[in-house]
Design a binder for these strands. Structure first.
Length: 408
RNA sequence: GGGGGGGUUCCCGAGCGGUCAAAGGGACCUGACUGUAAAUCAGGCGGCUCAGCCUUCGAAGGUUCGAAUCCUUCCCCCCCCA
C-alpha cells in the first residue's frame, strides 16, 4: 500500500464515486486502485429471492451507476445459486430455500428492474450458478477451510441466534463464503452492498487474498428504513416502495411514511445534491416548510424518478383528489362480477378488499364500507344487503381502498 | 448413544380434562381525530348460509360424556453429557 502517492485528481474522483456511500474500506484503497488508471471491476450481487426491487435497493444501485458513468466495468451478479441457499443476513432464523423455478422467474424480473436505474447495455450480467454449480466437494472443502467458526460467530446475527439457542444450519456458514467466492470468480476490484452486507463483503475481501488475488475494496451504503419507520425496507414486511410500482401507489406509500423519516429519505431516495437536500431540510426544521408539503415534494420526486415528471404530477393530483378532497379518483381499480345483483359481503370478497365474508361483516359493522355514486356516499349497515350492479359499475370504498365493480 | 426441555391461532407467548376459537403483547385492519404522518381513544383480528354452526393448538391413533390439556407411536427443534 503506497501512502501519499494519490494524486489530487484521483482523490477527487474517489470522493465523487463515494457520494451517498456509508463507508469504504480499507481507507485509501479505492484511491490506490483508481490510481492504476484502468477501469475497475465493480461487483454488485443480488439474490433473486423476491421479485421486487425497491427504494432500498436503489440506494446501492445509484452508487453503482456512479461507477458506471465514470467508465468502470460493472458486473451484476444474479445469485441464482445462492438464492437457493438463502442469505442469513438480517434474519434471525433460517430461511426456507426456494425452488429453482421461482429463482429463475425472479431473476428475470430483477434484471428488468435493474434497468430502471443502471444502463443494462453496459453491464456484464453473470449468474453465480455458473461457477458455484461446478464446485465439487473437494473445492468446497478447500473454500470452507478459509474461514473459522470463530469468524462466523463473530457476526452479530449468528452470535445472537447461537446464544438464543436457535438453529443455525451448517450451510448458512457457507453462504458468506459462496458470496465471497463470487468475487474470486469475477476478479472483483470493488464490491458494493448495503451496510448489512459488510460481513459478507469482508469475507469476499479475505477470500480474494486467500486465492492470490488483489483484495477488493468494500463499499457499503446506508440502509433505508421502510414506510413503517421501524424496520429496514423489505418486501416481506410490506413496508416498501417498489421501483416498478404503479405511480399512484408509489406516491401514496411515500405519503404514509412517518415525518421522522423525512431527512433520511430526502438524503437516500431523491438523488438531489447534498446542498439542495440540506436547504430543503433546513426549511423543514425551521418550520418554513410544512411537513406535509415536504412529504408531497418527496413523493412527487420519487414518482418522477421512476415514471417521469408528467406522471408524477398526475399522481399527486390523484392523491389530492382522493385523499385530501375525498373524491372518487380517476383510475379506480376495476373488478368484474358476473351477477347483476350480489350480496355486499360477497362483492367485497370478490373484489379482493377483504379476504373472507366474515371480515366483510365486521367491517360493515364498524361502518367502514361505503358505496359511492356520483357525489352521493351511502354507508352500508346491513351485511345482508344486496347491491345492484349497473352497466357503468358501482364504486365501493372500504377504508382507504376503493374498487369499482362492473358487470362481467 | 444417554439425559433433560420444547413444538399453541401472522410473530412472541399464556393455557395443562369442561366456563377455550384459546389470556397478554406485537404486527395488521377499521372507526374517531388528522396532514392517508405521529401520538391518542374505540372496535376487530379462523371460517360460514353468523344471536347459530363448522374446522383449529407438530402428525396419526387412543382414553373420556367431554382433550390444546391424559396415554401411545411418529416427525421436528434446543440444551447438557459422550
Amino acid at each position: 500500500m503506497s501512502h501519499g502517492t494519490v494524486s489530487p485528481r484521483v482523490g477527487d474522483a474517489a470522493t465523487e464515486l463515494l457520494a451517498g456511500a456509508q463507508e469504504a474500506f480499507p481507507a485509501g484503497e479505492l484511491e490506490r486502485k483508481l490510481g492504476q488508471g484502468r477501469p475497475l471491476r465493480i461487483k454488485l450481487g443480488f439474490d433473486p429471492t423476491r421479485p421486487d426491487l425497491h427504494l432500498g435497493h436503489a440506494v446501492v444501485l445509484r452508487g453503482l451507476r456512479r461507477f458506471q458513468e465514470a467508465g468502470h466495468h460493472i458486473v451484476l451478479i444474479i445469485g441464482d445459486f445462492t438464492a437457493q441457499l438463502g442469505d442469513p443476513t438480517g434474519k434471525d432464523k433460517a430461511r426456507p430455500p426456494l425452488s429453482s423455478e421461482d429463482v429463475e422467474a425472479n431473476a428475470q424480473s430483477y434484471l428488468d428492474q435493474f434497468g430502471v436505474v443502471v444502463d443494462l447495455e453496459r453491464v456484464e450480467v453473470r449468474r453465480n450458478s455458473e461457477w458455484l454449480g461446478k464446485l465439487d466437494l473437494s473445492a468446497t472443502l478447500k473454500l470452507a477451510a478459509k474461514a473459522t467458526v470463530a469468524q462466523m460467530l463473530a457476526r452479530e446475527n449468528f452470535a445472537r441466534r447461537y446464544e438464543r439457542g436457535d438453529a443455525i444450519g451448517l450451510h448458512e456458514f457457507l453462504y458468506p463464503l459462496l458470496q465471497g467466492y463470487d468475487s474470486v470468480a469475477i476478479r472483483a476490484d470493488v464490491e458494493l452492498g448495503g451496510l448489512d452486507q459488510r460481513f459478507n463483503l469482508l469475507v469476499g475481501r479475505d477470500l480474494l487474498a486467500a486465492y492470490g488475488q488483489e483484495p477488493q475494496v468494500c463499499i457499503t451504503y446506508p440502509i433505508l428504513e421502510g414506510t413503517d419507520g421501524k424496520e429496514k425496507m423489505s418486501k416481506s414486511l410490506d413496508n416498501y416502495v417498489g421501483l416498478t410500482m404503479e405511480p399512484g401507489e408509489m406516491y401514496g406509500r411515500t405519503m404514509s411514511i412517518p415525518d421522522a423519516l423525512l431527512p433520511a429519505w430526502y438524503r437516500l431516495t431523491t438523488g438531489w445534491s447534498a446542498p439542495e437536500t440540506a436547504s430543503r431540510l433546513e426549511n423543514l426544521a425551521s418550520g418554513q416548510l410544512h411537513p406535509r408539503d415536504a412529504k408531497m415534494a418527496l413523493a412527487r420526486r420519487i414518482v418522477e424518478l421512476y415514471h417521469g415528471q408528467p406522471t408524477a404530477l398526475r399522481a399527486e393530483e390523484g392523491f389530492v383528489k382522493q385523499f385530501q378532497r375525498k373524491a372518487i379518483p380517476d383510475d379506480v381499480p376495476t373488478v368484474a362480477i358476473a351477477e347483476r345483483r350480489v350480496n355486499i359481503c360477497q362483492a367485497l370478497v370478490t373484489a379482493g378488499q377483504v379476504k373472507s365474508t366474515s371480515v366483510a361483516r365486521q367491517k360493515i359493522a364498524e361502518g367502514a364500507v361505503k358505496i359511492l355514486s356520483g357525489d352521493q356516499t351511502v354507508r352500508v349497515t346491513d351485511p345482508r344487503a344486496e347491491i345492484e350492479i349497473p352497466a357503468e359499475g358501482v364504486v365501493i370504498r372500504l377504508g382507504k381502498s376503493i374498487v369499482r365493480i362492473v358487470p362481467g
